[in-house]
């Protein structure tokens, strides 16, 4: 066998080994590397109360309620499953926060299942378009939560 081919085969074997190791690592990280929990993940197996976590999903349409103090906001986060999470937040919302749009909240669950957020991030989706095209398309963001 030519030296050149020997080197090539050795390299392919090494590449397969590295690939396998990486795939294993990614498989192992699958749950932990997720940036947030979606409502469907927590159905039937709630997270411990008072542990700092991130949850995310879509802001349910028509669920946003502003409190009388002008700062407290209550809303419901949904995903493609029937499960939902009630969220309360007492700071200024990001500009892009709106109903039927993606959101990620950092905070803690209360014993009654209410999620009290310390921080809210607006999650943008992969659609980019000028305002005039948006007029008839506002109902498009109902895909799976990512």
């Amino acid at each position: 066998m030519k030296r050149k081919n020997q080197r090539l085969i050795l390299l392919i074997l090494a590449a397969v080994a590295v690939l396998a190791a990486t795939l294993l690592a990614i498989w192992g990280l699958r749950d932990r590397a997720s940036y947030f929990y979606a409502p469907g993940d927590l159905a039937g197996k709630p997270l411990p109360v008072d542990q700092a976590v991130r949850i995310g999903g879509m802001v349910k349409k028509g669920s946003v309620r502003h409190g009388k103090d002008g700062l407290t906001v209550d809303f419901v986060v949904r995903d493609e499953t029937p499960s939902t999470i009630r969220v309360r937040f007492r700071k200024i919302l990001p500009d892009l926060f709106q109903e039927d749009s993606g959101v990620v909240a950092e905070g803690r669950f209360q014993p009654d299942g209410l999620f009290v957020a310390d921080e809210i991030l607006a999650k943008h989706d992969e659609n980019y378009m000028p305002p005039q095209l948006d007029a008839g398309k506002h109902e498009h963001k109902t895909g799976p939560v990512r």
Binding site: L29, R30, A33, S34, Y35, F36, Y37, A38, G56, V104, L121, K123, H124, D125, E126, N127, Y128, M129, P130, L133, V145, R146
Partner: peptide
């Protein structure tokens, strides 16, 4: 993984950018 970063906008079959 679930990420804060949005999904892919440009693919071989098209794009979600106007």
């Amino acid at each position: 993984w679930r990420t804060l970063h949005q999904g892919q906008s440009i693919g071989l079959t098209g794009s979600t950018i106007a």
